[in-house]
Design a protein around this nucleic acid. Structure first.
Lengths: 333, 333
DNA sequence: GTGAAAGCGCTAACAC
DNA sequence: GTGTTAGCGCTTTCAC
C-alpha cells in the first residue's frame, strides 16, 4: 500500500507538503495541491490511520457500547449516534456488550487501547467498568442508564414516570390485578420500571403484591416462562406491564398458549415502540421511548466534550409517550 | 496516559522486555515478568493500539459492514461474526451502510485507513465498492449477496430456492393468485426471491403476471404502500410472498387496514424468522434463513484467510427452512 | 509557501 | 534472557 512518501516523490514535493495539502491546515499553493491530489488518485493512496492517530494523539472514532444489538431500542439509539457523528466527521464503532460486564470491560479496554475520541455506553449492572474509562480521561456519555456522578454526561428516559403512566392507564381501563414483568435486579431501567408500577398502584391505594411481579433477563424466552408462572397462579393477573419489547414477545407467546386474547382477557402494555408492535393482533399498547433522540443527544454531548468544553457533567432526561392501542383497551372485551 | 517507557523504568527493565513480557513472544524470566506485570497494574498501563498497529503493520480488528442495523437478519449475522471473532482474539466493529453505496464507500475507506485485518460485507447494489477493497489486498468475505468472482469468499443462502419452496407451499395450500413484494431491482436477494417465486409459478404452469409483483425499498412503509396497491386492483392477489421481515410489517399493516385476516383471507409467507413473527396473530409463516450460521461461517473463512491461506475464493451456500405457521394455512379459512 | 527533521509508542532485529 | 536501536507512516515545529 502506498505511503505519503510515495505520494510526495510522485508529486515532486516533500511529505510535509502532501500532509498539508491533504489536511488543509496550513496554506499550500494551488498548483501543488493539484499535483498532490493527482498523485494521490494515481496511487490510490489512503492515509495510514494508525500512524496518523499515533502522531496526532487522537482519533476520529467513537465507540458505542450497547447492551443488546438485537434490541430495537438500542439499534435506534445507534442510528441517532451515527447520524450526528457522521455529520461531524466521526466514525462510530458499535460494540455489543450483551448485558455482560466482562464483555463490556473488554470493549472498554479496546476503546482505550484504540484511543477512541469518546465513548457512549449503556452501562451493564451496578458493577460497571466505567471507572476504568473515567481514569483515562476519555470523554464518555451514558445512555439509558446512569453512571456514578462525575463520570460524564448522561441521557436518560424518565422510565419510572413512564411505567407509572402506563400502569395508571391500565387502572383507568378497569384492570384490577395488574402484574409486572421486568428485568434483573440491579439493572437500573428494570428497577425503575418496577418502581413506577408500584408508584401507580400505591397512588391508587391498591395493594402491591409481590406475587404479581416477576423479574428475569431482558429476553423473550425468560419472560415467557415468567409470565406463564404468573398466569398459573390461583389468582392470576388480569393485566401486565412488560419492561421491554423482547420480553413482550415472550409474554405474547405465553398469553397465546393459554388461549387468552390481549385487550379482552388480559391488558398488556410493553415498553418500546418496536415496529412490529403495531401489527400484532390486537396492536400492542406501548411506552414509546425517544430512542433515536437519545442517541442524537448523546452524540452531541460527547462531541461537545471532545471539543474540550469543561462543563460539569449533566443529566438529560427525556420523556416517553404512551401509545394506547388495543391490547390495553378494556372496552374491547 | 502511561507509555511502555513508564512501565519499563518502574519495573527497572528495558522497553523491549516489557513488550516481550506483555506479548509472550520470546521467553522472559519469570521474575521479570512479575515485575513488569506489577508495574503495569500499578500504572494502569494500556498499550497504545495505534502505535502497535503501526509497528506491527496489522490490527486485530474486523470490520463488518451491513446494510441495515435494524434488520434482524443482519444483527443475527453480527452475533455469529462476533462470537467467532472474539474466540480468536479479534474485535468487531459494526458499520451500518444503510443500503447506501456512498455510506458503504465511506466505511470501506475507514476500514482501509484503519488497516483492519479483514472485512465482512453485505454489498449494496451492483455498483458496490468492493473493488477498492480488493485492490488493497485486505481479505474480504461477502455475506447475503455475492461479489464479483475473485474478490473473496462468499456466504449465501439459497434464497431463490427458498422463495420457490415458499411459493410452492402457497400453491399447495390452494392459493390461486399469488403475488410477490420484493426489494429494489439490482439488489441480488430481491432479484433472486422474485426469480424463485416465478420458478414456482412456471413449474406449476401458472401465468406469472407482473401486476401481482411489486418492488420497493426493503422497508416497512414502502412495502405497506406497495401491498396496498396490489390489493386495490380489481383482481387482487389472494396470497403474498414477502421478501423480508421489515417489509412483512408493512404488509401486515396493509392487510389489517383492509380488514383481511392472514390465513383466512390472504396467504402470507415472509422471509426471516424474526422473533416477533411467531407471536403475531395468526403466526406468520416464514422462510428461516440461518443468519447466525452465515455470520459464523463468514468469520471463520475470513480468519482463515487472514491466517494467510491462499486458497481460491469459494462460495458457501446455506439452505433456508420453511416454517409453516397459520398465516399460510388455507385450512384456517 | 515549502522543506528538513524530530518524534508519537511500539516491536523486532540485532547484539551480547 | 536482556538491552540497544532502528524504524513503522504520519504531523508539526522550525528554518528559510
Amino acid at each position: 500500500m502506498p505511503t505519503i512518501n510515495d505520494v510526495a516523490s510522485l508529486a515532486g514535493v516533500s511529505t510535509a507538503t502532501v500532509s498539508r495539502a491533504l489536511n488543509g491546515k496550513s496554506t499550500v499553493s494551488p498548483a501543488l495541491v493539484t499535483r498532490v491530489l493527482e498523485a494521490v488518485t494515481a496511487l490510490g493512496y489512503q492515509p495510514n490511520g494508525p500512524a496518523r492517530s499515533l502522531r496526532r494523539r487522537e482519533t476520529a472514532v467513537l465507540a458505542l457500547i450497547i447492551s443488546d444489538v438485537e434490541n430495537w431500542f438500542f439499534t435506534a439509539i445507534a442510528r441517532g449516534v451515527e447520524d450526528v457523528a457522521h455529520d461531524m466527521g466521526y466514525s462510530v464503532v458499535l460494540c455489543n456488550s450483551d448485558e455482560n460486564a466482562d464483555k463490556e470491560r473488554r470493549y472498554i479496554d479496546v476503546a482505550i487501547q484504540e484511543r477512541v475520541a469518546g465513548v457512549i455506553l449503556s452501562p451493564t449492572g451496578a458493577g460497571t467498568n466505567a471507572d476504568v474509562l473515567a481514569d483515562t480521561g476519555i470523554p464518555m456519555v451514558a445512555v439509558d442508564r446512569p453512571l456514578p456522578v462525575g463520570f460524564g454526561d448522561t441521557v436518560l428516559v424518565d422510565t419510572r414516570q413512564a411505567a407509572r403512566m402506563a400502569t395508571e392507564h391500565l387502572l383507568a381501563q378497569g384492570y384490577g390485578r395488574i402484574g409486572c414483568v421486568t428485568g434483573p435486579a440491579g439493572v437500573r431501567t428494570a428497577d425503575d420500571r418496577l418502581a413506577g408500577y408500584r408508584d401507580a398502584l400505591r397512588a391508587a391505594r391498591r395493594r402491591t403484591s409481590s406475587t404479581l411481579v416477576r423479574r428475569s433477563e431482558y429476553k423473550g424466552t425468560r419472560a415467557q416462562q415468567a409470565s406463564a408462572e404468573l398466569f398459573a397462579q390461583t389468582e392470576p393477573p388480569d393485566a401486565l406491564l412488560v419492561a421491554n419489547s423482547a420480553m413482550a414477545i415472550g409474554v405474547l407467546a405465553a398469553v397465546r398458549e393459554l388461549g387468552l386474547r390481549p385487550g379482552r382477557d388480559v391488558g398488556l402494555v410493553a415498553f418500546d415502540d418496536a415496529p412490529w408492535t403495531a401489527v400484532v393482533d390486537p396492536p400492542l399498547t406501548v411506552v414509546a421511548q425517544p430512542a433515536y433522540e437519545v442517541g442524537r443527544i448523546a452524540a452531541q454531548l460527547l462531541l461537545a466534550r471532545i471539543g474540550s468544553s469543561r462543563r460539569a457533567p449533566a443529566v438529560t432526561t427525556l420523556t416517553a409517550r404512551l401509545l394506547e392501542r388495543a391490547s390495553s383497551r378494556r372496552s374491547a372485551r
